[in-house]
């Protein structure tokens, strides 16, 4: 990570917080998250469900419910493929204003988990793709349609001239996700956020969609934020990885470091729980004991200490651990980090 220059950072999150005011109390869905996305690289965000990874991606879009409060800075350094003198702070923008709307879909696009639900069933996919194109790059309907057909062709949809006038329910799940990707990339965004794009798909289709995202990313030099709970997919897709737990980043490093020198007990536990061939033969899977605590009115302690094998009484349950840069570009949030207590994965 040290090899990367600071000036190719395209989007940076600094101490981003998303809190939801619920009747039961304050839900800290995202609590002080910082990371950066570099030009042309893929950042993987991994964590269990409910850890705040999807809320983080929605925060980048400023798409949050009314009772959600956003804090910290989300700095965008490039707009319409031009470097900005002063970065735009998305966190401070009016959530319905014209500025954020031109960024959404134009500079940052998103693909969602369930392609079944992500398209409106009442409109043809063409209608929905052309709408995005008309908003950002080409207001002329006929030209926009041509761009949309091209976009569908680029995601390997056969016979796009005909497919463009079909309704979502006429397409298969994999086809729909391709159409979704076509829509997201049709306006040539500089950042693509993929929120578990393959979870709802068959395994064979999954591989195809992942390849497709990787190819398109290389061709267009797009930066990708890839959100998943699947470490296998992270290994295949990412350059850098953020591990999230309970709304906080617990480990942040490049992908090789994560797999070969994980520092946080949670990361190590996650890696252990990957089913490998070896483990399948032994017939045993390891899982992390306990469940994620309910993130409302949490006590001040390390969020993982109730499930951690290495938790130390009197240390881990007394205060929150700080983020430590144990090596250049390798950040860990653990009291034991950098104290030579490194264990093998």
């Amino acid at each position: 990570m040290e090899k990367q220059r600071k000036d190719d950072i395209i989007l940076e999150l600094k101490d981003v917080k998303v809190h939801f005011k619920l009747d039961e109390g304050l839900l800290k869905a995202v609590d002080g998250v910082s990371f950066a996305i570099h030009k042309g690289r893929t950042l993987g965000i991994v964590g269990e469900s409910g850890c705040g990874k999807s809320v983080t991606s929605n925060a980048i879009f400023k798409i949050l419910p009314k009772y959600g409060l956003i804090g910290g800075d989300i700095l965008l350094y490039e707009k319409d493929h031009k470097r900005l003198e002063t970065p735009i702070n998305i966190a401070k923008l009016n959530p319905t204003g014209p500025e954020i709307r031109s960024i959404r879909g134009g500079n940052i696009s998103m693909i969602f988990q369930e392609p079944m639900k992500a398209f409106s069933p009442l409109h043809t996919i063409g209608n929905q793709i052309i709408e995005a194109i008309q908003l950002h790059i080409e207001p002329d309907p006929a030209k926009a349609r041509a761009i949309a057909i091209e976009a569908l062709r680029s995601v390997d949809i056969s016979n796009p001239e005909q497919r463009i006038d079909e309704y979502p329910h006429q397409l298969s799940g994999g086809m729909r996700q391709r159409a979704m990707i076509a829509m997201a990339l049709s306006c040539k965004p500089s950042i693509l956020i993929a929120d578990e794009p393959t979870t709802a798909l068959d395994v064979t289709v999954q591989a195809q969609v992942l390849d497709l995202i990787n190819n398109l990313k290389r061709e267009n030099d797009t930066s990708v934020i890839f959100i998943t709970h699947d470490l296998g997919v992270i290994a295949e897709m990412s350059d850098d990885v953020v591990v999230m737990y309970l709304g906080k980043v617990v480990e942040y490093c490049d992908v090789d470091t994560l797999f070969y020198h994980p520092m946080h007990p949670y990361t190590r536990a996650l890696l252990k729980s990957i089913p490998t061939e070896d483990k399948i033969h032994k017939g045993r899977f390891e899982s992390i004991r306990g469940t994620v605590p309910y993130p409302i009115n949490l006590p001040v302690e390390c969020g993982f200490c109730s499930r951690c094998d290495e938790a130390e009484k009197g240390v881990c349950d007394k205060g929150e651990p700080p983020m430590v840069e144990v090596e250049p570009g390798h950040f860990v949030r653990c009291f034991h980090a950098g104290k030579g207590k490194e264990a093998q994965a």
Binding site: E24, G25, N297
Partner: peptide, 14 residues
């Protein structure tokens, strides 16, 4: 709401 707070003391989950 108040009920929830009263019942749920820090660190215990009911």
């Amino acid at each position: 709401m108040s009920l929830f707070k009263k019942k749920q003391k820090a660190g215990t989950y009911e």
